[in-house]
């Protein structure tokens, strides 16, 4: 990689003016799609992800059903216009892998035993990609599930921590991911105190890893508060008609 060619941290600030432990501006809206049972739109800076949840319902492929719990199906997809160069709309190897990883990040919180022989379908569409799409996807998908009324043990929020120019930085974007030394996406269910997604691309020392996890935990806590606000806002905004 182009290590050392691009200066990512200067005077304690990153290329977009953020401090090392600062998140990008995050906006969350819930209930954006009419036809879906639940939906959410999440923006981490320039990264924009839409999630839609359908179900529990009976799928077309009956053989996937389980007798003791609901099957959770997840599709992560990047729109062909989401990147600088056109992305082929067919599911790539990376998208199939991310679908699985995101599904496994959500499965521990969904109380799927209540709805045997059904499927819960999660569709995630990346509208604009600027780093941290998988973590934004987890955040959006857990909100969409909550809006669909599916019983959950808690919300899940995700954030990535990276190592850039030797410093640990919270919520790295595309440029920092490309020229940085490490990228570690983390998803946590704060109410369960459980880590549901943890990946690491690059090299971190054991000490750095612990520090990075602590940084991610703090970031997730902030996002988790925003998630709760967004869910409540939908109801607090309804005004009594005179």
């Amino acid at each position: 990689m182009g290590k050392g060619k691009v200066k990512l941290v200067e005077g304690g600030l990153r290329h977009d003016g953020r401090r090392l432990d600062e998140l990008r501006p995050i906006t969350i809206s819930v209930g954006v799609l009419k036809n879906a049972n639940g939906s959410a739109l999440v923006e981490y800076g320039r990264t924009k992800v839409l999630a839609a949840v359908y179900g529990p319902r009976e799928p077309q492929m009956k053989h996937i059903l389980l007798p003791n719990r609901a099957v959770i199906r997840c599709r992560y997809h990047m729109a062909s216009f989401s990147t600088y160069e056109r992305k082929s709309p067919t599911l790539s190897r990376r998208e199939i892998e991310l679908s699985k990883v995101i599904r496994e990040a959500l499965e521990p919180v969904i109380i799927s035993e209540l709805y045997p022989r059904t499927s819960i379908d999660v569709f995630i569409e990346v509208i604009n990609a600027d780093g941290g799409t998988r973590t934004a996807s987890v955040t959006a998908a857990s909100l969409a599930l909550a809006e669909a009324g599916i019983p959950m043990k808690g919300l899940v929020a995700g954030v990535a921590v990276g190592k850039i120019d030797g410093y640990l930085a919270l919520d790295i974007d595309e440029v920092e991911d490309m020229y940085g030394e490490a990228d570690m996406p983390v998803a946590i269910a704060p109410s369960l105190r459980q880590i549901t997604l943890l990946q690491l691309n690059g090299v971190l020392t054991p000490g750095e890893f612990t520090q990075a996890l602590e940084l991610a935990r703090k970031g997730v806590e902030v996002i988790h508060e925003m998630q709760k606000e967004a869910l409540k806002k939908k109801y607090l905004d309804v005004k009594v008609e005179e």
């Binding site: 049972n37 709805y115 909550a146 669909a148 009324g149 019983p151 808690g154 869910l231 409540k232 109801y235």
Partner: peptide, 26 residues
């Protein structure tokens, strides 16, 4: 005791419940 859904808390003495605001029919 935790809530599993978005809803309104229904508290009466030592009885606790949540009336869901979102949901589907089961």
């Amino acid at each position: 005791y935790y809530s599993a859904v978005v809803g309104l808390a229904d508290v009466e003495g030592d009885k606790i419940g949540v009336i869901p605001l979102e949901g589907f029919y089961y």
